Amino acid sequence: MGQKREEYEHHPAVDSLVTLFTKAHHDLSLLHFKLDKEFQQIYPDNANPMKLVGRIKKIQDELSSLKDQCRQLLTAKQDLIDKATSILVGNRSMVQRMQASVGIPVTDDSEDAAFSSFNQIIDEWTTHVRSKAGNGGDTSMPEDINDLLFASIVRST
């Protein structure tokens, strides 16, 4: 017991300061408890100001993590698009070469609906990325989830 007492002994000059801080901590804890009780009686659970402040702090803490996850998602999406383009266009080119070597008529790009649709989607994504990158000052609220994700990246950089 003598050992514990030695750990918490203070210089006599700071004893009054430690006592003041201890009293202030106790007073603030008591005030917090009284406010919490009062708010519980006055406000319904979802409107309690203390709980709302806590929720706001939690959301603020999680926001930066969410932004990072959005960046990772968009990076992964762009990687997927790049790989899909590379593989599909490469495979299509190989099929066309095989068709030509066997003597089968080669399907023209304009006649291939699936390939045209794929190119249209890639072109739309590219246009979308370029337009968002160029409109950093745009404050309009995007409606599409991809717009939201991309806007969060562009506005945070």
Rank of each mutant, 00 (worst) to 15 (best):
Q72L: 10
Q69D: 12
M1S: 10
T157P: 00
A76F: 01
E124W: 09
A13P: 00
S86G: 09
T19R: 15
Q78D: 06
E6W: 15
V89Y: 04
K132P: 03
D15F: 00
S116P: 04
A151W: 05
E9M: 11
A76P: 00
S131Y: 09
R92F: 07
D61W: 03
M1K: 08
D138Y: 14
T107Q: 15
G137Q: 13
T19F: 15
N135V: 00
Q40D: 03
E6Q: 15
E62I: 03
S64P: 00
L31W: 01
D112K: 10
M141S: 14
D82N: 15
Q41M: 09
D68C: 14
L30D: 08
S29A: 11
P49W: 02
D82R: 11
R155P: 04
K34E: 08
M98A: 15
F115P: 01
Q96T: 12
S29M: 06
K37E: 01
A114K: 12
R92N: 14
G54Q: 08
L73W: 04
R55C: 02
D109C: 12
F33E: 03
L74N: 04
Q69N: 14
I104P: 01
Q69T: 10
I145W: 07
S131C: 10
F39Q: 01
K4V: 00
T126L: 06
T157G: 10
G137H: 07
A47P: 01
Q99N: 04
T19L: 14
L28V: 05
D82E: 10
S86N: 13
A113H: 11
E111G: 15
T127W: 07
P49C: 02
N91P: 03
S116V: 09
D123G: 10
D61F: 07
K37F: 04
T85I: 07
A13D: 06
A100H: 11
S110K: 13
H25R: 08
D36Y: 08
A47T: 01
S93D: 11
P142G: 13
V154L: 12
F118D: 02
S117R: 09
N146C: 06
M94R: 14
Y8Q: 08
H32A: 04
D27T: 02
D82Q: 06
F150T: 02
K34G: 00
F150R: 05
I56N: 00
F33I: 01
N48T: 05
D45G: 01
S101E: 13
G137I: 11
Q40W: 07
L35W: 06
Y8D: 09
V95S: 04
A47W: 01
I87M: 02
I81V: 14
I122W: 00
N46S: 08
S64A: 07
T75F: 10
I87N: 01
K37T: 03
G137R: 12
A84F: 11
T127V: 10
Q60R: 11
L28F: 05
K51F: 05
Y43E: 06
V89D: 05
Q78R: 13
A24P: 06
S156R: 15
D112M: 08
L17M: 15
D45L: 09
N146T: 04
F21H: 09
V154S: 08
H26E: 11
K57L: 05
I145F: 06
I145T: 05
L66Y: 10
G136T: 09
A113Q: 13
R97E: 13
I42Y: 05
Q120K: 14
P44M: 07
D112S: 03
